[in-house]
Amino acid sequence: MIVVLMGVSGSGKSTIGKILAEQLGWTFVEADDYHPPANVEKMRRGQPLTDEDRRPWLHELRDRIDTACARGENVVLACSALKHAYQDYLERNEPACVQYVYLHGSEELIRQRLAARKGHFMNPKLLHSQFETLEPPADAIRVDIAPAPEVIAAEVKKKLGL
């Protein structure tokens, strides 16, 4: 199974993903690690990525998902997956293997978290554009990000039946 923790930057995908993967004994994959350097630099400058910018990134992620599904590897993937087109692309080859978990919260709460975050390339000025782009999957498990990360991870496990 591939659990894709999706949502805007600052929603806790990486933090929750690491906790969840550790608790389950699964592999944790950080989608940000798959961005080409040009994308990272563009985001650092506060420029939103285009669909064209995201194409090689999404291709690498889909390859990783397909490989994990073929091997029977359980993965927690922290990935924004903001648009339906991205979500559909990522699960196209293995739809039964992929489960989306939408980490949702208010723009104000996430803005506060981004302001406190250190060492991440994502420019907080891009947050509003991410909310404008966000298209959560209708069948995604929805989890509120207001509680502590450990509580959120427990809620995800409960809703997934793990």
Rank of each mutant, 00 (worst) to 15 (best):
M1Y: 13
V8T: 11
V8K: 06
S9P: 00
G10T: 08
G12E: 03
S14R: 05
S14A: 09
T15R: 08
I16K: 04
G17D: 07
G17E: 07
L20D: 06
E22V: 03
Q23N: 14
L24M: 12
W26E: 10
T27C: 10
T27G: 02
F28T: 11
V29N: 07
V29F: 04
E30I: 06
E30M: 07
A31L: 06
A31N: 13
D33P: 02
D33Y: 04
Y34D: 12
H35E: 15
A38P: 00
E41R: 07
K42L: 05
M43Q: 09
M43T: 05
M43R: 01
R45W: 00
R45A: 14
G46A: 07
Q47V: 13
P48F: 05
E52N: 03
D53F: 04
R54N: 10
R54A: 11
R55Q: 14
P56I: 14
W57E: 14
L58P: 02
E60V: 09
L61N: 09
L61R: 08
L61G: 06
L61M: 09
R62V: 13
D63K: 10
R64C: 15
D66N: 14
A68C: 11
E73D: 08
N74S: 14
V75Q: 03
V76A: 05
V76E: 01
L77F: 01
L77W: 09
A78V: 03
C79F: 00
K83D: 11
A85C: 06
Q87D: 06
Y89T: 13
E91M: 15
N93W: 01
E94L: 07
A96Y: 09
A96F: 10
A96T: 13
C97K: 06
V98I: 15
Q99N: 11
V101L: 06
V101Y: 05
Y102S: 11
H104F: 05
G105S: 10
G105M: 08
S106N: 03
L109T: 04
L109S: 07
I110T: 00
R111G: 12
R113V: 08
A115G: 08
R117L: 06
G119E: 08
F121I: 15
N123Y: 03
N123Q: 07
N123P: 03
K125Y: 02
L126A: 12
L126F: 11
L127C: 14
Q130P: 03
F131H: 02
E132I: 05
E132P: 00
L134M: 13
L134D: 09
E135T: 06
P137A: 14
D139W: 02
D139Q: 03
R142S: 05
I145G: 00
I145M: 01
A146G: 02
A146T: 12
P149W: 02
E150R: 09
V151Y: 00
I152N: 00
A153N: 04
E155N: 04
V156C: 02
V156T: 05
G161V: 10
G161P: 03
L162R: 06
L162M: 11
L162A: 07
L162Y: 13
